[in-house]
C-alpha cells in the first residue's frame, strides 16, 4: 500500500506501523463515576465495518507522525490521511 503522508507525500506502507481504530483518540474521563465501564468500552469495543474505516498508523521509519487514515477495508482505497495530532486538538476544542 501507499500512504499519502500529509507532509511528506506518498510513502510505502512498510515505513508505517498499524495500530487500529481511531476512536482510541477519544479517551474517557478517568474521574467519571463509571470510568471503568467507559474505559472498557474504549479499549475493547470496536466497529468492524466492511467499508470505510478510520484507523491509526504511525510513521515509525519516517517522521514519527501518528496519522489517521480512512481506508476502505474492502478495496484498500485510502480516501483521507490526517495528522492525528490535528484531529486530537480539534476533538479537545469541541
Amino acid at each position: 500500500m501507499i500512504i499519502h503522508h500529509p507532509l511528506l507525500g506518498p510513502r510505502d506502507a512498510s515505513e508505517f506501523v498499524h495500530l487500529g481504530d481511531a476512536t482510541l483518540l477519544s479517551r474517557p474521563d478517568w474521574q467519571a463515576d463509571d470510568a471503568i465501564a467507559q474505559f472498557h468500552e474504549y479499549l475493547y469495543q470496536r466497529e468492524n465495518p466492511a467499508g470505510e474505516y478510520r484507523e491509526l498508523w504511525y510513521h515509525e521509519q519516517g517522521d514519527r507522525s501518528w496519522l489517521i487514515i480512512t481506508r476502505n477495508t474492502l478495496t484498500h482505497e485510502i480516501s483521507s490521511v490526517e495528522l492525528a495530532r490535528d484531529v486530537a486538538r480539534k476533538g479537545s476544542a469541541s
Binding site: 479517551r27 501518528w66 495530532r85
Partner: peptide
Amino acid sequence: AVLVYRRMEFARQCLCPE
C-alpha cells in the same frame, strides 16, 4: 525500547496534544 517510544509518541500526539 522501540515500543515504548512508539507509545509515548502516541500519548504525546493523540492523547496529550496540548
